[in-house]
Design a protein around this nucleic acid. Structure first.
Lengths: 205, 205, 205, 205
DNA sequence: TATGAATGAGTCTTCATTCAT
DNA sequence: GATGAATGAAGACTCATTCAT
């Protein structure tokens, strides 16, 4: 995407909502193909033609559902962020901040461990541009979750909840990523390390 | 970079060392232009023509000194990583691990604060690929520094120093990055937050 | 083609087979344009942009069907070699080696006379490289034809049929080329000269 | 060389005649470097910078002696053609056409066997363009030699000596080339094959 | 609606040649 | 004279996107 193009502010919303089941399947196939290509070939190999081919759809069809490449990536990000909704809901029922953070960390680990490459690339993509504003991505979602935890009565007191939430999310991601790079899968130890860093951060102020 | 290209293992070392003073200036101008373009336009806008133009040299000159685009990026990474050498040396004279970590965190903050965008993008680039093997980048360097600190007598005891070092670096970067995204510049408070996270992490095992 | 590139062994097979009739026309137009450009401008002027323009298609279309420049040249060679298949079949029905050689020489003359420049350039290209292995070109085909003739009962006896066949093809081509350079078209006289050389060669051992 | 450039009719004569011995050495080194590069890398890798480097001279110096790339190639062709002068002289003393042809064939074999790759490439280059007119190359020279042989009293009578000479040269080259491609070095057998083809050709009219 | 053929701006890279030092 | 830094036109190739069928 060139600078000029980026400034033109393209719509990132799907071009048409699929009402028929067949179309839904097509859209899902395209998004999964996008995930697949991104995982295997990285951003370099992530192009719409490859995605269409992998999805078993014509390039024309792809553009029938997504107005442009960014919209496709956007949809993928949204799809990946979706499971985190579950955590949001679940956390509503947890009273203690310690337990809540534990649940949050576990969710984060599970999320990132399932498709590590993909998680990391989406992370990068989210940082890279535009999306943050228009799409409610993983990071935004996680920050909201953490902010809620910090609202709990027994949570550590911090100066700025937004900052703290952002930092906690950043720490969590970076440690899980680092573990992912090492192909480590000792989830329990990882969880304790992450929690240690979070509490250290929250109680150091 | 396509897959095929990546497999071809391009050289990342400069094509020719400048012998005349004029040439040295050219090389420096090109690298600085690369930094500038990367900062302002991101990876999307980072193309060799733009760099050459910004540097005020012809595209041919760029390719006299850098065999390909990656080599240019590589040189930029190396240039940015250089200042961190200073810390490595300085740290040799510090005995206490607490003080050492403090110095390390400060160095990291200073490094990333100077050109936050650039630092973050280089971070991404380093993660992205190939370089890690061929270029001794910032991250590798910083990990070595932290490992040395962990070797100090009064340092917290950790199970695996390599893992701990990688994690400490990851935490540090992510927190400083997060601060950078927010355009925060309260260095002192940031420093304390980072140190808190580090110590929390190191003493939680 | 640089050394590095050559080692990378590019595919010379068409990228995608045209499924629609329109596409078939495009492919044919591109190959014919390639022939045309090669004839008129030689290898120096043979570039993909010129070919695309001459074919009246966009450069993108050219690359939809041919993965690279060599593949295009390869396709052209194959196209030119095709008519020689006819001779192969026809020769099956001829018993005497003398008559067979006569037919072979006539075919060669006709082939090369139709588009002399093109024939000569393709000849050069085939010699030049890579193709020989991957593409069954004119020369290979002709050698096979001659070997078959040498298998006939009344054919002159030679020490090494492969060598003799290669030599006969070489002589034929060189004489017809030489005539082509002079723009001579006295086919009959040329034919007799070629046959004389061939028989002289074959019976001199 | 683009079409436009070719039409501009560049001078192919060396830019300045070296009077000092050092300069002569330089010129010789450049031409030999050109031969070397052409042999190892073919036309694709034959570029002035490579030649200069191989010659151990700066690119500037190369252009001091040769006004352009073609002039360099031209000089190389001339150099390679030179040894054939010896044959021309020697042939003056031979009376019988049979012996003369034998001597001619031997010379041709020796010439082409010494540096087969180079000989073949120069052959191609000579055919390719422009040079033929301005430079007295190998082929032209050989044709003159053969024409002289055909002038001998006992030589076979041919309709058109120029044509016959061209054809004899063509046959000779093609057979030796073919042998060269096969890496055959049985010079004597090759010589007999070539002579057979020549006599067959000359006596078939 | 689906298809896939076609487009062409944009990017990397090379290399013959010039010219200031 | 020699050097090598600098130039930039030219060429191979990609890929997001459009549109006729």
């Amino acid at each position: 995407m060139t600078l000029r193009k980026r400034l033109a502010t393209k719509s990132l919303t799907p071009r048409k909502s699929p009402r028929q089941t067949r179309a839904e399947g097509t859209v899902a196939a395209i998004v999964e193909a996008a995930a697949h290509i991104l995982e295997r070939r990285g951003f370099e190999g992530f192009n719409t033609n490859a995605v269409a081919e992998k999805a078993g759809v014509s390039i024309g069809s792809l553009y029938q559902y997504f107005p442009n490449k960014d919209a496709l990536l956007s949809a993928l990000i949204a799809r990946e962020a979706a499971p985190l909704l579950a955590v949001e809901k679940e956390l509503a029922g947890i009273a203690g901040s310690r337990a809540a953070f534990q649940r949050y960390v576990i969710a984060g680990i599970q999320y990132q461990m399932r498709r590590p490459q993909l998680a990391r690339l989406i992370d990068t993509a989210e940082k890279a541009d535009t999306f943050s504003d228009q799409v409610m991505g993983t990071v935004t979602r996680l920050r909201a979750v953490v902010e809620k935890i910090l609202d709990l009565k027994d949570a550590p007191i911090v100066l700025d909840k937004a900052v703290a939430a952002a930092d906690v999310v950043a720490i969590t991601r970076s440690l899980i990523d680092a573990a992912g790079e090492r192909d480590k899968t000792d989830v329990d130890r990882l969880r304790r390390r992450v929690e240690g860093a979070i509490w250290g951060y929250l109680t150091s102020g």
